[in-house]
Design a protein around this nucleic acid. Structure first.
Lengths: 118, 118
DNA sequence: GTAACGTACAACCAAATGGTTTTACATATG
DNA sequence: CATATGTAAAACCATTTGGTTGTACGTTAC
């Protein structure tokens, strides 16, 4: 049962998603696992830079890194995506609740203040 | 028809969501519009700091700011939430596609390479 | 008209980000 | 063993971020 995230965890999640390179790494490793070197080869920046991006994603829980020999297999984590979706769903719920309240208001008995007085 | 977002726009969106104060502002203004001053009163930081948070949210499209006399009414923008959800949905689709591919593989005719040779 | 209110904006600061290069170390490979 | 490969980690740098205070300006209220 998807435990509720702390503010700091949500911060890290969205922060990690706020970079195009990192989003691309998540996409790739969601399709198929890849080593850090393979990922590094895909972008126009140093190995160390890509390594850092992977580290940010790992701390946010968006990918997992598993040693295999001298390599590190990086895998996208669908659960983390689901958690992020839940956060956004919560916003949508709030907004829908407001819409419902307004709808209810409009459907009410006409209030005592002359809605259609002449 | 929800136009597709550029990388920079998605960056701004997730970046804007990567701060607890800003997420709270979105929640509040989704429930009911509020002035910048009202918002500022709700947090333990300077007016200017809150003003900046609102500006970040506005640039990301997550809230709108509308002048009313000397005040600025801040309103949460449900469309932006929907756009963010779409981004995450895209990740989920990728992952589901992989699961489907694996399922299909497992359901295939046993391959030519001795699945159950003795 | 003057004072108070709500907002905007600039200047400043510490800390975090996103990148670099270099060094070190463990694991494969010849 | 010697060498090449894959990763980690440190030091460094420019820019951005998240906060501050101070000042200026339009709008309301008295």
């Amino acid at each position: 049962m998807l435990t509720d995230l702390t503010d700091a965890e949500v911060d890290r999640m969205f922060r990690a998603l706020a970079d195009a390179t990192r989003r691309d790494i998540v996409r790739r490793t969601l399709v198929a696992e890849a080593t850090v070197s393979e990922l590094a080869g895909a972008y126009d920046m140093s190995f160390a830079a890509v390594q850092k991006h992977v580290a940010v994603l790992e701390e946010a829980g968006l990918v997992t890194k598993q040693p295999r020999g001298r390599e590190r297999m990086v895998r996208g984590n669908p659960d983390a995506i689901a958690r992020a979706q839940k956060c956004l769903d919560a916003f949508e719920v709030i907004w829908r609740a407001r819409v419902d309240r307004l709808d209810a208001l409009l459907a009410e008995e006409p209030p005592s203040v002359h809605p259609s007085d002449s």
